[in-house]
């Protein structure tokens, strides 16, 4: 009995779709565009967050040495630095190694880097910090100050500027994601409400007849609510599929740059986030439909 009623209600909702397919298509694609903007911004924020975490997790201080420092003294310096508190590891890098690293990073264009003179790449110490030190800006600055005082040190790069920029960008992207989320929610509610309202108006006769033959208000309204939920669900499904394609495309375009930035691959929305978005879109569709069938009740 229940299944039969669900079947009838689903069929009535389907009739609503079939009666005005163009309107529903416009509605679904409008919602999909809004949802895609939102989901893409969430993905961008997640990627920036991921990048920031990786940078913080593998925080380094690069100590550029004077050109006249010989390899033996580099070894001694590295050994001394590795004993300092907060330092996890120290790696020496000669000018030639630095040039080769760049060439490898550039891939097909690497040969161009190999034509440059070795002296264009100063020798350096790449100092990896412990997790605690990496997240302690004061400690990093103190360490950098100590290193700058050494004769053989030309300059010290702590990458603080980059961290600050990336942190700010991450914050902005998170705020944009929240803002777009609210906009997408409002758009979804308004669009679904408008479509359902026209549906209610165009099916006024059917609603009147249903009431005459003993349909309860719930029976009259459920198909419209289902239509709203389906609009949200289909639109979000389209948005997530588009996002998947978009992410793959961006990954293809930025494939060579990402390793240089310290990020292996783009972060995709996890399944649980997709599920939450799908449920959220159903909720938005439901609320939009509820607004319109509320008017139906008052009528």
């Amino acid at each position: 009995m229940l299944w039969t009623k669900i079947n009838h209600i689903t069929r009535r909702a389907g009739r609503g779709f079939l009666r005005r397919p163009a309107l529903y298509l416009v509605s679904v694609f409008t919602l999909a565009a809004a949802f895609l903007s939102f989901a893409a911004t969430v993905t961008a924020a997640a990627n920036l967050d991921h990048l920031l975490s990786r940078w913080l997790g593998s925080a380094e201080i690069t100590v550029y040495l004077s050109n006249d420092v010989i390899q033996e003294r580099m070894g001694l310096l590295a050994s001394a630095v590795s004993d300092i508190s907060g330092v996890a590891a120290v790696k020496t890098r000669t000018g030639r190694e630095a040039r080769e690293d760049l060439a490898l990073g550039l891939g097909d264009q690497g040969d161009m880097a190999r034509t440059l003179p070795e002296t264009a790449f100063p020798a350096s110490l790449d100092i990896s910090l412990t997790q605690a030190a990496a997240r302690d800006q004061k400690l990093r600055n103190e360490l950098a100050q100590r290193l700058r005082r050494l004769d053989m040190v030309s300059s010290v790069e702590t990458y603080d500027d980059w961290f600050e920029r990336l942190s700010a960008l991450t914050l902005v992207s998170r705020m944009a994601a929240w803002g777009l989320g609210l906009v997408a929610l409002a758009v979804a509610i308004l669009v679904v409400a408008a479509v359902i309202r026209t549906g209610v108006a165009s099916r006024a006769k059917e609603i009147e007849v249903l009431r005459l033959v003993g349909a309860t208000e719930r029976y009259v309204r459920l198909p419209f609510l289902l239509e709203g939920i389906l609009q949200g669900l289909i639109a979000m499904s389209l948005a997530l599929l588009s996002l998947r394609g978009l992410t793959s495309y961006v990954e293809g375009v930025t494939g060579q740059v990402l390793p240089l930035l310290g990020s292996g691959a783009l972060v995709r929305l996890p399944a649980i986030a997709c599920l939450v978005l799908l449920l959220g879109s159903c909720f938005a569709g439901f609320i939009g439909a509820l607004v319109s069938v509320g008017a139906l009740r008052r009528a």
Partner: peptide, 23 residues
């Protein structure tokens, strides 16, 4: 008071659908 967009059979079926009768 028929629903013009529905077929004759669909119009007649409306009360039975409301009652939850199987298709």
């Amino acid at each position: 008071r028929l629903v013009p967009e529905l077929t004759a059979a669909q119009n007649i079926a409306l009360p039975l659908e409301v009652d939850g009768v199987r298709h």
